[in-house]
Amino acid sequence: MKSLPLLFLGIFATLAFSWVGIILTNHIQMRELLPATPELVDAEGNPIAGPTYPDPNSRRQLFGRNAPDENAYPQQLPGAAKRGKLVYEQMGCLYCHSQQVRREGFGSDFERGWGDRQSVARDYILQERVMLGTMRTGPDLANVGLRYSELWQHQHLYNPQITSPGSTMPPYAFLYEVRRISENRGPHPDAIEIPSAFHPGEGYEVVPTQRARDLVAYLMNLRQDYELPEMKFSE
């Protein structure tokens, strides 16, 4: 192997191979994925089962169209939730929490109540930053918005021990303002209820900052509670 061009060609070709295979082909394929209604219709508007239907004039399979007057999924996040996603990213939540439900029978995602169906590629097409995650030091969050209330989320972020004793999740108390209750105006309307064991003290209240409210808005919007042509809820 004395020839530099030959060596270089091999070095180039090997990486090009995987780049084309893993990234480019999927990139081209996934550009065609768009939000879809749970049931699709054919060219005449008749409902079809699944994502494709046979073309009556040829042997090809045609892609169904979105049913009119129905919501297509996934949907865009509301503004507050979008800002909250940045907080999620900046706090590094992804290093302990995944956002993907695996199929029934692979792991215990279904048994743990983390989702009613498997997550599919279409669920993520509108996300500017996809954070599937590779660790479950904490539970999966793909559907966390369906599991808990806003108050629960705030208490849990302020100090995880309030809602989940023994948790190893770090507290995000710095996203909350502990302040003296105003004597003129009374308690802040957004102040969150804190159990006495964790309460900062008589005359004080815990008020979420804008970032905490955004983050909770994001968490409440983490929900794959819709069906897609290619994936229905499990019975």
């Binding site: 780049w19 990234i23 996934m30 590629a121 996809v130």
Partner: peptide, 17 residues
Amino acid sequence: PASGVVQSLTNWWFAHN
């Protein structure tokens, strides 16, 4: 940024490599 899970594929193509 690429669309959807192509990001995840690119991510792990990069990170593992």
